[in-house]
Write a protein that binds this DNA or RNA. Structure first.
Length: 199
DNA sequence: AGGAAGATCTACT
DNA sequence: GTAGATCTTCCTA
């Protein structure tokens, strides 16, 4: 009997992938493919940089001050989007935490692999490596809006979803721009990738 | 009303 | 490379 070969790159990640500690999920999201449906097109990129955020014990987390209206999506089911504002930009996060806990992963940079023309229309830049090498930048390029909070990235029908791929080796560092940080590395990135926001 | 924020852009030394 | 301006969204820590 013939068995169809399993193709990682054709499959979404299951809930069990996201229902783990945010730092573990942040590491393992590197190399996965982020897909954004926009105007009938598919914009796609490889995730090359992430940061993990925890709950009430993490001073840099949106959840630090307890549950409020603006941060309540941090408590939602893993695998959902949470979009929030910093300065003038929207930050794209995927909720990721163990049961009964709180946390998420900030998507900080992607390497564009499909729909680059449309991304460039959204965010005109001279050098292609400047297109999506930062959390605010990738949100502009992909047309991310706060109304996308709650979207299920495990569903192919969603406006944003994530596809599996082979695991990728990673490097780590302190989180970027965080004024009061935890004493450990919670930023993860693909070493040497030109689309990382900073080496 | 005032201030802070997980950032980005510009204009320079 | 780096300082300084930017001018949104949400909070009152």
């Amino acid at each position: 009997m013939r068995r169809k070969a399993y193709r990682r790159d054709l499959n979404a990640l299951p809930l069990s992938f996201y229902a783990r500690r945010p730092d573990v999920v942040a590491k393992e999201l590197l190399g996965k493919r982020l897909v954004r449906r926009l105007e009938g097109a598919k914009l796609e990129g490889v995730i090359v940089e992430t940061e993990a955020y925890f709950g009430k014990d993490d001073p840099a987390s949106r959840a630090f001050h307890g549950r409020k209206r603006y941060n309540s999506p941090m408590w939602s089911e893993p695998g959902r989007l949470f979009v929030y504002n910093v300065h003038r930009y929207w930050m794209l996060n995927v909720i990721a935490h163990c049961p009964q806990e709180v946390g998420g992963v900030l998507l900080r940079a992607i390497e564009p692999i499909q729909g680059v023309e449309l991304m460039l229309r959204n965010r005109p830049v001279r050098r292609i490596t400047e297109l999506t090498n930062g959390p605010g930048k990738l949100s502009v390029a992909l047309g991310v809006e706060p109304s996308m909070t709650g979207i299920n990235v495990m569903n192919y029908e969603s406006a944003v979803f994530i596809l599996d791929s082979e695991p990728f080796p990673y490097s780590s560092s302190r989180r970027v721009g965080v004024t009061v940080d935890l004493p450990r590395d919670l930023r993860f990135y693909i070493e040497g990738n030109p689309y990382v926001s900073k080496p």
